[in-house]
Design a protein around this nucleic acid. Structure first.
Lengths: 225, 225
DNA sequence: CGGCCTCTGTGACCGCAGTTACAGACTCAC
DNA sequence: GTGAGTCTGTAACTGCGGTCACAGAGGCCG
């Protein structure tokens, strides 16, 4: 059930408008030389201290990039969605270094992996593509700095509140999953959620948290007691 | 006491070998169009939510890039030395976004600030310069990810040990300064240092910590109890 | 229905880090 | 030398977050 070359090109351009700057010839070539990879949820996309096989464009699914400890705790650094790209990978490619975190497929994941040579060529020849990549870098760096600040200075209930707010009206996730994003453990998340429920900010259900007082939650997230 | 153009060019190339890839014509032009800035220790080089005046090359001194809180606590994100460049700035320039942290001059600081247009031109036309900038990005991202992990998962005594190890044989700094790097407070650093001294790992003096058992300290830093 | 597995709730306990509030020690300027 | 300012030590207390050890509760499957 492989999409034809031109179908693929269309999907690609829809997700990555920047690729519109390529001539159809280059784009076709890209689609042909790039390796297509499918991964089941939960499988590792890349691992710490590994070197890097190419530049991935995400067609479907997401990658969560995490640090984890020997004791099994885990912490989300960021999430890569279709349309942006795994900047850690570009950083490895361009910096000729190794991964410094793990990437894990979250939904069924489809990638198009550009070989390094092609990636370098695009960077060199396509100003818009280059801009696109730089943009990603800039965002990630800002995000990471923000994350450092939050982990260093904010209480866990604030960070939890913020996380919930970012997830829309009702959040479908286990407490364990939330803990893994925050770098904490299940029991604490349960305890804090109970606290939030007690304040009438959320309503809890199995694998589900419904936000009922968005403003209150935001106030908490912003450091208001 | 202004250095002549060619003297400046020499200093620049000595610190930034990558600039060797420029023709002397371009290099001279660079020296002429770039703005030279001198700042006293402690003054702000840039501030959060500010936008960005250009790409700085550091001729002398260092910049510490920090996040700080309303309550006066402070945390070092990284330090910029002559030879590397303030990547947060490039990220602002290239991502057309704003600073997300503060930069503070540490020693008497001398910068050469390239106007954005010139910077973009170098990025576009000079593959080696581009590579250089990408390299910086890659390193910073890896460093920041590492920092997140440490703040999230490591105890303060471990992080303190690591910090001391990175500073050579004897560290000249106040406890407050160390606390500011770690995102902690003076009393805790004092307490922990006393602990380290008690274990025979360091010897304390006024504004000075001498490492006497490097291996022991490393063991502590690596998570060994 | 019964058994298994995952998810959640909860209480007791602990330790690290931060806060508050001092006191003493050292340095430097006058 | 005297006093101001900075740096350090330190004790008492607090609270957050983590650990341990369970007990239910809901879902899924045979």
């Amino acid at each position: 059930m492989e999409a034809s070359g031109s179908e693929l090109a269309e999907r690609l351009v829809a997700l990555y408008p920047v690729l519109r700057c390529l001539s159809t010839r280059v784009l076709t070539e890209l689609c042909q030389t790039a390796r297509r990879v499918q991964l089941a949820p939960g499988t590792a996309v890349f691992d710490e201290r590994q070197s890097c096989p190419g530049f991935p464009l995400i067609l479907a699914g997401t990658i969560k990039v995490v640090k984890s400890t020997a004791t099994g705790r885990e912490m989300l650094l960021y999430r890569v969605e279709p349309g942006d790209s795994c900047i850690i990978t570009s950083s490895c490619l361009l910096g000729h270094s190794r991964y410094s975190a793990r990437g894990i497929a979250e939904l069924p994941l489809t990638l198009l992996v550009l070989p390094p040579s092609l990636f370098e060529q695009l960077i060199a020849e396509q100003p818009l593509f280059r801009d696109f990549v730089f943009h990603l870098f800039a965002e990630r760096i800002a995000e990471l700095m923000q994350l450092v600040e939050e982990v260093a200075f904010h209480r866990l209930d604030q960070r939890l509140a913020k996380l919930l707010l970012a997830r829309g009206e009702t959040v479908r996730a286990t407490h364990q999953a939330l803990a893994d994003e925050l770098g904490s453990v299940r029991e604490i998340v349960s305890r804090l959620l109970k606290g939030l429920a007690g304040q009438g900010l959320v309503v809890l259900g199995r694998e589900q948290i419904s936000i009922v007082d968005r403003d209150g939650l935001r106030q908490l997230a912003d450091g208001g007691r």
